[in-house]
Design a protein around this nucleic acid. Structure first.
Lengths: 344, 344
DNA sequence: CTGAAAGCGCTAACAC
DNA sequence: GTGTTAGCGCTTTCAG
């Protein structure tokens, strides 16, 4: 069973370091060091061992390595969903964000562990952290989980959250200036002569709240009386926004513009309005938020508040790696800008 | 150091099973069994132990568990890129596919390990397999890696590839009927009176080749003489397609329709044509492939060959889990259909 | 420079 | 029912 010499690989696929050691006629430690490029091992021997490993298709078992080293070379990307488990599929925003993050992470030779989480179950974050599957965590959107994040932030450092700053947040936060975005949108609409501006969206998550606050501020700055009838709640899906806009139209409330929480909602509003005979922008102007890829392709193209996701993703990953290295890192809010297209 | 009673958790975050065992006054194995829901342990004790673990935020260390169990509860989703590492960001097709797969996988309580791979380096697939980070592999697109996949398929079972069937493929393959898709597109264009139909795209990956073959077949069926000047190579990016179409326009070759390898390329062609004064579809009709979300939002909306990605993803994950369970599983080619919108 | 040995945290025979 | 024990495959002191 233990033929000492150059035994052939056993059944392909379950090689371990000991096998390579035997083939090379050295000890396991030497193989480990050689494969790690440790200069203690003379270059010739090192190359020899690497060569043997390669020709036999041997690769270090990562579970064992992770257990020993307490590190996984993996970053967890977490998408917290409050209820609707189906959102991810349909939500281009998440997808674009994930793509960007994945690129940044793989550029650093880390892997991406994608994790769609239902936040209803308390302890979800602890469970992820304690499972030790990832060396760091990127949370896309606070959702309603500010408290949970804060609770964990004190003792768990390598975590960066995409979202909006809430007073007293103790976790590292990266995001856009949502409030200013909301204000910008309204001010643009006002400059176009609109007075009856709808806010379309949920007001639960911090990002939403702040966009709404910006909306309120913009309305106020314009000297327009705030009308609560113009605040139309809608979940984050296309379908819900459509329902909401249909309800609005049916209600008979007069309006000449819509500022939506996101492009997804804005695009849903756009088509719903058009389908019921309204012209955009002449009857109703529409402004979105995010500037997803779709925004420039709608008819008419969507005027929107642009978040630079590429930069955002880069910053998130940057800060995360700094935290993983033990540094502290500042929360960062990036400016947004209005992209004027034809819908408003 | 070893206070036997209910010692408080040590520094939060590095609890192990032994700690819980001590707190519960039982042995490690009992904790392990209790946490696994093993009915050998009486329900009362089991609940007690689970309770203790929960209040202390203890969760089983997955590296250790994986090492012992030789399973990771993780599926690797691999995006092979031949050269252009930037493709992923911009490519809505990958993103939609990843989203769909992630939903299917998380529904089964597995995690998703995202892996963008540069296929130039030989041995990339072995390296992924041997690292034992995932219990199964989903490869999105064969790219030019048919040989590599075949080489591995004999000894590594839990792998499903999205792509197009190549004679002699020994790996489990899921995909669409690319050839019929190409034929359908051309036949639609011919029915609309087009005779000078461009094929826009690369012809390296099997999917591309087969769409091209369908194109050739459609042209032939229509009794149109094949004109090689109408085959316009383009990489998989928007930018490259734009360049290619500009080149085509500059060349003076006459054409009245474009069938593009993908919607991304078709949309790039659309805007490039419009920008240079051509009207779509009256001057040039355009047909794409995939039916990504963007397709229905362009101006005019894009006529395209629809692949049902949701179904495709479900099938892939289904087959993969069957293979992981030791069953064999058949390759599956799904039908495509033409979605007639306004661009052709 | 190289090897022996300890142990990362867990699960599952195998005793009792 | 429960505990003892032997690894899973690796890295890294610590000796030589």
């Amino acid at each position: 069973m233990d033929s000492p010499d150059l035994a052939l690989a056993p059944e392909r696929g379950r090689l371990k370091m000991a096998d390579i050691a035997r083939m090379a006629g050295v000890s396991i430690s030497t193989v480990s060091r050689a494969l790690a490029g440790n200069p203690l091992i003379p270059k010739t021997l090192r190359d020899q061992i690497v060569e043997i490993a390669q020709t036999h298709g041997y690769v270090v078992n990562q579970s064992a390595r992770s257990l020993r080293l307490r590190k996984t070379d993996t970053i967890g990307v977490i998408i917290p969903l409050a209820h609707e488990a189906g959102q991810m599929i349909s939500d281009p925003f998440f997808l674009e964000m994930v793509g960007r993050l994945a690129d940044e992470i793989t550029r650093r030779d880390y892997l991406v562990l994608l994790n769609k989480v239902i936040t209803n179950e308390p302890g979800w974050l602890d469970r992820i952290i304690q499972s030790h599957r990832a060396d760091g965590l990127l949370i896309i959107g606070q959702s309603t989980q500010h408290e949970a994040l804060n609770a964990v932030a004190a003792s768990y450092r390598p975590m960066v959250v995409w979202g909006a700053p809430i007073p007293g947040h103790r976790y590292c936060l990266v995001g856009s200036d949502n409030r200013e975005g909301g204000r910008l949108a309204v001010s643009h609409l006002v400059a176009r002569g609109r007075r009856r501006i709808v806010f379309l969206g949920e007001i639960d998550a911090p990002e939403a709240t702040q966009r709404y606050e910006g909306y309120r501020k913009g309305v106020e700055e314009a000297g327009i009386a705030f009308d609560p009838a113009l605040v139309i709640p809608s979940h984050y899906t296309r379908e819900d926004a459509q329902r909401a806009v249909e309800g609005l139209l049916a209600s008979g409330v007069a309006f000449d513009a819509v500022f939506a929480f996101s492009d997804v909602l804005a695009l849903a509003a756009l088509t719903t309005l058009q389908r019921s005979g309204k012209r955009v922008p002449s009857d109703v102007a529409v402004v979105g938020f995010d500037d997803i890829l779709l925004a420039q392709h709608s008819t008419p193209p969507l005027t929107t508040i642009r978040q630079d996701l590429e930069a955002g993703a880069r910053i998130m990953v940057d800060l995360l790696f700094r935290r993983m290295a033990g540094d502290s890192s500042p929360s960062t809010i990036s400016p947004v800008n209005l992209v004027a297209r034809e819908s408003a």
